[in-house]
């Protein structure tokens, strides 16, 4: 049965159904409802909710809880995600699985609390130090976001990597009917063979992100790179919407992609054949598919709620095979369908 749910709540409930029983978080707009939902929900499912003293503490609590091999998560918004970057780097180095929800708001600095997509660089290129990657998923509807939670945990454990679900304040705050995903069975979740649980007769296990011997550390780094290579080979996801006959293809993700779907219909009514290419994984970015598409379309327009962050990946994929244009609003200003349509008309004419 479909339920009318807020984005933050749909994501939280889906995480509970995916078997997450450990949530650590700190309130920040526009995602505090997710934290509040977990505060109420976790005791009902015999899970743990803890409000930390800061996002710095949150991410380290996540580190500790993830060491035990359990499904752990947090949610935050841009300034909080910045504070978590130190711990994210450590977790990536220690190959710990965890799921982060970043409900992006306008920046830089304190910025505002309205929807934005300006944490793309931070999420996909590594906001913390060192050679690491995290898987970044970008749902564009509440249904897709809720449906993604189980996959997020599966990816995290399959690759021992961090997974960020990158949404903006609009997906966090809006309501939409959601068919909640099925419950997973926690008893079917096997404790990983690296988990710290107390040695109890076996050889003690160590989980760290360091080795002071550069040759040893390089070996660790090469292992991470092997993992990232596998993820890039196997886990790329995207959606193509009416691109077959498109004279101009828009590349957009998340809320912006959703707005562009309306623009595609508007444009086609006025005789302009527009298509949408929507990366669902922002890392790994669908470079190969976009590269192919760019061979057959003259113009590509990137639309973002930023001043051109994903744009750099689009350019890398296209490599001059077609003209790459950009339209963006930022700081919490959401582009409207007509605005985007106008920017398309300027390119086509």
């Amino acid at each position: 049965m479909k339920m009318l749910m807020k984005g933050t709540e749909a994501i939280a409930e889906a995480a509970v159904r995916a078997g997450c029983r450990l949530y650590f978080g700190y309130p920040i707009t526009p995602q505090s409802e997710l934290t509040e939902y977990m505060a109420k929900r976790m005791p009902e499912v015999k899970g743990t909710f803890l409000q930390s003293e800061s996002e710095v503490a949150t991410v380290n609590m996540l580190y500790g809880a993830a060491c035990t091999g359990r499904k752990v998560m947090t949610s935050t918004s841009s300034p909080g995600f910045s504070l978590m970057q130190e711990g994210i780097s450590y977790m990536a180095g220690a190959e710990l699985p965890a799921v982060f929800i970043n409900v992006m708001r306008g920046g830089p600095g304190l910025g505002d609390i309205q929807p934005s997509q300006s944490d793309y660089f931070q999420s996909t290129k590594g906001g913390g130090h060192g050679d690491y990657r995290m898987i970044v998923l970008a749902p564009h509807t509440l249904q897709e976001a809720a449906g993604m939670m189980n996959e997020a945990f599966e990816l995290a454990f399959k690759y021992r990597m961090l997974v960020t679900i990158l949404v903006d304040g609009m997906i966090g705050q809006m309501m939409e009917p959601v068919e909640l995903p099925k419950w997973t069975k926690p008893e079917e979740f096997a404790e990983p063979d690296w988990a710290l649980t107390g040695a109890n007769g076996r050889k003690p296990r160590k989980v760290t992100s360091f080795d002071l011997d550069p040759y040893e550390l390089e070996k660790m780094n090469l292992r991470y790179q092997e993992t990232y290579k596998k993820v890039a080979q196997n886990e790329v996801k995207y959606e193509e919407f009416k691109i077959e006959d498109a004279e101009i293809t828009v590349v957009a993700y998340g809320t912006t992609a959703r707005i562009v779907k309306t623009v595609v219909d508007y444009a086609r009514k006025s005789g302009i054949k527009v298509g949408l290419f929507r990366p669902i994984t922002l890392w790994p970015f669908p470079y190969d598919r976009l590269s192919e598409i760019s061979k057959n379309v003259k113009n590509i327009l990137t639309v973002e709620m930023s001043y051109g962050q994903m744009l750099e990946d689009v350019k890398l994929a296209v490599l001059g095979k077609s003209n790459v244009h950009f339209y963006g609003r930022s700081a919490g200003v959401v582009p409207t369908p007509v605005e985007i349509l106008d920017s398309i008309k300027k390119i086509v004419r």
């Binding site: 609009m170 809006m174 939409e176 809320t255 959703r258 707005i259 562009v260 779907k261 309306t262 623009v263 595609v264 219909d265 959401v334 409207t336 369908p337 007509v338 605005e339």
Partner: peptide, 9 residues
Amino acid sequence: EPIGSPVVD
């Protein structure tokens, strides 16, 4: 039909 943009002009 499916709703695209939740924002309207």
